[in-house]
Amino acid sequence: MNIAILSGKGGTGKTTLSVNLFSYLNKGTLIDTDVEEPNSHLFLKGKLIKEEGVYKKYPLVDDDLCNYCGKCGDFCNFNAIIPAKKKVLVFQDLCHDCGGCSLVCPTDAIKYIDKEVGKIYHHQIDDNKLFLYGNMTVGEVSGVKIIETLEETTKNEEILLIDSPPGTSCSTVAAIKGADYCIICAEPTPFGISDMRMVVELLRAEKRNFGVVVNKYNLGNSEIFKYLEEEGIELLEKIKFDREFANLLADGELLINHSEYFTNKMANIAKKVLGDKND
């Protein structure tokens, strides 16, 4: 069973929830798909067992074969390939790796070559758990390929937690692609609710089952609970804000190692979402 943890707004507690829920579980795998700024690894002490590159392809034009017909440029939706007077310009960071330009090229002048866009790190946690995270190369524009590779690598896990990127853009859509269930980690602030609404819209469009964990519920206002009730969305759990939690997190500590309150919350979420799969 694959469970994605997402939020819309950043800083609501996705990673806190992901790493603590993962550590609470008896077995399972966690992937951190926030490849632009991964941070789950800061909380999980494991052994690095594998490191691999993720590659994207981009076109390379053979000037000797090119007849400057312009078909590649007409085809490209992203202006990544522009036929000029005596050469064809390729803007690697605009390319979406679709292969279209090489398909329409009448002289076979376009080859695709590899470019590393990021890395994936595999960690062994305890004896029976795996943790993987992706890290996008600085200067790259999209982490989708890295997220897809993370998901492909872990698609057959029995229990998979997916720490998702914030927002509702391509990266988040890629992260929830393989999810059977989604946990929205929300906070009761105007900004938090506004962004959560977008996530709800996304998950409904993608036909995903989901529930909400309201984090820091004693801050902000009660608007969020009204919204959940009106929309008929399941409230999985609510977790208080506690300065001590913030201190522990800043020290890179797992809250379940220090707080019975937090451990009970994780136990309850695991039971609601995984049922007896964690036994």
Partner: peptide, 18 residues
């Protein structure tokens, strides 16, 4: 016509001029 491109408006605009 390059002005509404999602990405790469610069390259496309230059192509129009070219």
């Amino acid at each position: 016509t390059a002005k509404d491109e999602g990405s790469g408006a610069g390259g496309k605009a230059v192509k129009i001029l070219g």
